[in-house]
Design a protein around this nucleic acid. Structure first.
Length: 283
DNA sequence: CGGGACTCCTGAGGGC
DNA sequence: TGCCCTCAGGAGTCCC
């Protein structure tokens, strides 16, 4: 489940291989994603050069002189880097020469290729002209690691809201890049119950959320993100931050705060599982 | 406004 | 070993 750290790792890895590289050709294996891959994508991208690869929220932006390829990994999307080989690349094809399951797109450069693979098809790939890409990202809130995500912004945005802190942290318009896993971890580290209404938050609590948001995300990026089920980075490596999880997926396990023996509680709110310690995160 | 239900999708994992 | 069922969740939409 790629959230900000996993997308950041993906972008950093891709950069190493495709910056300033000319696109030789693009092949759509299977255009069925959340939105259909534009059929004219290969024609548009052919012979263009990737000038920049960057992350905004959980989106990946591949920039050329004219266009921006905008991609979201959804739940199971990933970009895989493969060295080009003269031989039929067996990682693209299975024994019967059929395109491997879940490979959707192939972008070939001189020495390397990147493949977009997505099991559950919740991700997408869109293409824009550079002059109109920004309005497609204009609804996004500030980056959680930026200085824009600060006390003044936070307090201003939430002071009259009755929405729970868990749900607003998941709202990409409020802050962009967090998902269910990291929000659970941030609230545990901050000692705040996920059901707390925003307007009830004290100043000190807001400061804790800001502090731990930045701390946890940075720490996860350092560890290569989290590997759950099938997340691997573009070089096939796994992250290790999942071993740092304090509450996520620890239903009925003991709280890890020293001196606290309470069991972690799981409940479903807004269709998402939330995990918290009833003692450390009192309402 | 806020939360609930539903949608897309497939594989993992539990129960029997 | 096997089948059936449920569940996971980002993000959008619709509804009350």
């Amino acid at each position: 489940m790629p959230e900000l750290p996993e997308v950041e790792i993906t972008v950093r890895t891709l950069k190493k291989y495709i910056i300033n590289q000319k696109i030789y050709d693009v092949t759509i294996f299977n255009g069925n994603l959340r939105y259909k891959i534009p059929p004219n994508l290969p024609k548009i991208l052919k012979s263009q050069t990737i000038n920049e690869v960057k992350r905004r929220s959980k989106f990946i932006l591949f920039k050329t002189n004219h266009n921006t390829l905008l991609s979201h990994l959804g739940m199971t999307g990933r970009y895989i880097v493969k060295k080009n080989s003269l031989k039929l690349d067996t990682s693209f094809y299975n024994k019967k020469n059929v395109i491997k399951k879940h490979n959707h797109l192939l972008i070939r450069f001189k020495k390397f290729s990147i493949i977009y693979n997505d099991i559950r098809k919740f991700g997408f790939i869109k293409i824009y002209n550079n002059n109109n890409i920004s309005r497609h990202l204009s609804n996004l809130g500030p980056e959680p690691l930026s200085k824009l995500f600060n006390y003044k912004y936070f307090e201003q945005k939430i002071k009259k809201r009755r929405i729970s802190i868990k749900n607003i942290l998941m709202d990409q318009k409020f802050v962009s890049g967090l998902g269910n896993i990291y929000v659970n971890e941030i609230l545990y580290a901050s000692r705040i119950n996920p059901n707390t209404s925003c307007f009830k938050l004290k100043k000190s609590q807001i400061f804790r959320i800001l502090k731990f948001t930045k701390l946890i995300l940075q720490s996860s990026i350092k560890k290569g993100g989290s590997t759950i089920l099938n997340y691997h980075n573009s070089e096939g490596r796994t992250g290790s931050y999942q071993s740092e999880f304090k509450v996520y997926n620890r239903n009925n396990d003991s709280c890890l705060t020293s001196g606290c023996n309470k069991k972690i509680i799981m409940s479903i709110v807004n269709g998402r599982s939330q995990f918290y310690c009833p003692k450390c995160q009192k309402l």
